[in-house]
Amino acid sequence: MEKGQKLRAVDNVSLDIKRGETLGLVGESGCGKSTFGRCVLRLIEPTEGKVLYENKDLLQFSKDEMRKMRRKLQMVFQDPYASLNPRMTVMEIIKAPLDVYKIGTKEERIEKVLEMAKIVGLNADAMNRYPHEFSGGQRQRIVIARALILNPEFIVCDEPVSALDVSIRSQVLNLIHDIQKKYNLSYLFISHDLSVVKHISDRVAVMYLGSIVEIAEKNELFSNPLHPYTQALLSAIPIPDVDAERKQIYLEGEVPSPLNPPSGCRFHTRCQYASQKCRELRPELNDIGNGHCIACHCAGKEKER
C-alpha cells in the first residue's frame, strides 16, 4: 500500500437485525465480512458511520460505557484454538467474564460455569483441562460457553464452523440454533459456506468487495437470486446427486483490489451483463418488494437472453 492510499474494507453498508433473528452475511474471502462484524462490536474502530443498538450509537460511547455494553454484545471467533488462552483451564476461560464484571460470589460463578458447560455439552470433568486437550468441536463449545456466560442479547458468529470437521459441523450449528431459541438471541452469522447459511439464517445479505449487493429472506434468496454475483455463488453449491443437472456460472477475472475499486458497480468487471451505465453509475440498494433488496442496474437481464 502506497503512502496516502486508503483501503475501504467496508463501504456504505447498512444492515438491520431484529430481535431473535439470524442474519447471514456471505461473500468471497476478503470481501469485508469479518471486518464488518468486528466494526459492529468496536473490536475495530470504524472511520465513519453509526452502529445503532437500542437506538443508541455505540460509536459515541466512552470506554467505560462500551465496557458495560459488552455484556450484551459477544463474539464467537472463527478459530476456536486461537481465541482460547492455552495457559488457562476451561473453568478459568469460561469464568473470566464473570470475574471481570464481578458477578456473584466465587461459588456462584463456579456453579454458573458448570451450568453453562452442561448447556453446551461439556462434562464437568473437562473443567480442569486445557484447550489443547480438546477437539475442534469441543473447543468451539468452550468459546460458545464463554460468549453466553454473561447472558448477551447479540452475538457475532464469525465463521464459527469453518475450522471444524464436516462430521461435527452440524452438531455445533444445531447447538448455536438451540441456544438462540432458548435465550432469544440475535445473530450476525458470517460465512462463505452458503449451505451453512441456508441452514441457520432467517435472512441473508450478500457482500462483494465491501458492499452489500443483495438482501432477502432466506428461501427467497435461494429460490430467486437476482444479482449476477448471488447467482454465481449459488450455482457453486455442491448438489449431493450425481444425476442432477445444473449450469454452474463461472466468473471471469480476479476480484479487484479494494485499494482501487472499479468505478460504478464494483462487480461490473466480472459481470457478463454489464453495460456502460454499470461502469459509470454505482447502483443503490433498492427494495423491490417483500424486503428483497438488490443493488444492480441489470437484474433480470439473464432471463431475457
Rank of each mutant, 00 (worst) to 15 (best):
G4S: 01
L7C: 14
L7K: 14
R8I: 04
A9T: 07
A9C: 05
D11V: 02
N12W: 00
V13K: 03
L15I: 13
I17C: 08
K18G: 10
R19A: 15
R19H: 15
G20W: 14
L23S: 05
L23N: 00
E28W: 04
S29H: 01
G32M: 07
G32T: 03
K33A: 00
F36Y: 07
L43A: 10
T47A: 15
E48W: 07
E48Q: 15
K50A: 15
V51L: 12
D57T: 08
L58Y: 00
Q60A: 14
D64Y: 04
M66K: 10
R67E: 07
K68A: 14
K68R: 13
R70M: 01
K72M: 04
K72V: 08
K72T: 06
V76N: 09
P80K: 01
Y81R: 05
P86T: 09
T89E: 10
T89K: 14
M91G: 06
K95D: 12
V100E: 08
I103P: 06
I103T: 07
G104N: 08
T105P: 08
K118G: 08
I119L: 15
A124L: 12
D125G: 01
A126K: 01
N128I: 03
Y130L: 07
P131W: 00
H132S: 11
E133D: 11
F134K: 12
S135T: 07
G136C: 05
G136Y: 02
G137V: 12
Q138P: 06
R139C: 11
Q140H: 02
R141W: 08
I144V: 15
A145Y: 11
A147I: 11
L148K: 08
V156G: 02
V156M: 09
D158G: 13
P160W: 04
A163T: 09
D165V: 10
I168N: 13
S170L: 15
V172T: 03
L173F: 05
L173R: 12
H177N: 13
D178I: 03
D178A: 14
I179Y: 05
Y183F: 15
N184V: 07
N184L: 08
L188I: 10
I190D: 01
D193F: 00
V196M: 09
D202V: 00
L209C: 02
I212Q: 10
I212A: 01
V213T: 11
A216N: 06
A216Y: 06
E217Y: 12
K218L: 08
E220D: 14
S223V: 04
N224K: 15
Y229G: 01
T230M: 14
A232L: 00
A232E: 01
L233I: 03
A236N: 09
I237H: 01
I237D: 11
A244N: 09
A244V: 05
A244C: 02
E245A: 03
R246E: 14
K247G: 13
I249D: 09
L251P: 07
E252K: 14
G253M: 00
P256E: 10
P258D: 13
L259N: 05
P262S: 12
C265N: 07
C265M: 06
R270M: 11
Y273R: 10
A274L: 02
C278T: 13
C278N: 10
C278H: 02
R279W: 03
R282F: 07
L285A: 02
N286S: 09
D287T: 03
G291V: 10
A295T: 00
A295M: 02
K301C: 04
K303A: 13
R305G: 09
